[in-house]
């Protein structure tokens, strides 16, 4: 349909080609260094596009919340009330007034420590088991159905069993984290190992890599994008589980803080704690994503 148009364009441009003889003229190239002001402005622009929209939405939501909860008879505290009642909790996350009266920063750190231990074990064992299942057909046939059943069990359902087994709340909470995070790591690692291209296996065969060399020179880097997907799902799930586990086991974590605040009906405290949990969960997810980005760079494109 465009053909006639294109044709006439061509015929028009051909005779125009041998135009007037070219005369040389020196043009000053623009300096490659863009002025400092312009760069600052560009950075500011990028910052504004990333930060302004969520900020505006947040203000909007807070306003609606404020209006809805300021009516007489409102069951939940308005933002302004939270600010006045939980003021010291918000402004100083790291105070220590006694063994049970500590800032939310400390509580979060204690929860994070549990997550770190449980998640660390989950990562190690999950990658090892996932490699086994991905590599061996018989391991897959034997273990995969069992894992598919076990992974549907709610993390909290494991808590009584682990309390009975460990007889202590600390290892029980860690075990719950472990059992929550390990399944997606196992399954994604197994998929990653099974998807190693035959080409890489051929290269390894021609080079006569032994099992250990194959494991850390081909298998792990090749499956890394899958493994990190599993690790990222795992960290999210374990942060979900720690709060629930701590609400049941007690101790000094952020989960227990919520439980405690509920028992003394300090709703503003709970809201502040929820904000903490959300922000930390977001940071954890981004952290794993960033590590994945650094380690797997170049891997996804062949």
């Amino acid at each position: 349909m465009n053909m006639p148009l294109a044709k006439s364009d061509m015929s028009a441009s051909i005779p125009a080609a041998p135009a007037a003889p070219a005369t040389a003229k020196v043009l000053a190239l623009p300096s490659r260094q863009t002025p400092f002001n312009a760069r600052m402005l560009a950075a500011l622009g990028r910052f504004a596009t990333a930060v302004l929209p969520p900020l505006v939405m947040l203000l909007l939501l807070l306003t609606v919340w404020e209006i809805l909860c300021s009516r007489p008879g409102a069951t939940l505290p308005a933002p302004s009330k939270i600010w006045t009642e939980a003021h010291d909790l918000i402004v100083d996350p790291f105070f220590r007034n006694g063994p049970q009266d500590i800032g939310l920063g400390w509580r979060v750190l204690i929860s994070l420590q549990r997550v770190a231990i449980g998640y660390g074990f989950a990562a190690l064992i999950g990658i090892a088991l996932g490699t086994l299942i991905g590599q061996s057909v018989w391991a897959m046939r034997g273990l995969d159905p069992i894992f598919q059943v076990l992974r549907t069990i709610s993390p909290l359902a494991w808590l009584p069993i682990s309390l009975a087994a460990f007889r202590d709340s600390q290892p029980s909470a860690i075990f719950v984290i472990f059992i929550t995070a390990v399944w997606p790591i196992i399954i994604n690692t197994a998929v990653g190992i099974r998807n190693i291209p035959q080409d890489y296996r051929n290269v390894a065969a021609v080079l006569k890599l032994n099992h250990l060399e194959f494991f850390y020179k081909i298998m792990i880097p090749s499956a890394a994008p899958y493994i990190f997907t599993g690790l990222r799902i795992g960290i999210g799930l374990s942060w979900l589980a720690i709060v629930a586990a701590e609400m049941l086991t007690g101790g000094v974590g952020i989960g227990f803080f919520i439980c405690d605040a509920w028992n003394s009906l300090r709703l503003p405290y709970i809201v502040v704690a929820l904000v903490y949990i959300g922000v930390i969960g977001f940071v954890l997810d981004r952290l794993v994503a960033a590590i994945a980005g650094i380690i797997t760079r170049g891997t996804s494109v062949s």
Partner: peptide, 19 residues
């Protein structure tokens, strides 16, 4: 009877390790 570097292969799709 097994692969080895004395018979190096250049594969059609290069098969370089991308990482």
């Amino acid at each position: 009877n097994e692969p080895g570097p004395d018979r190096a292969v250049v594969f059609q799709n290069h098969s370089l390790l991308p990482w």
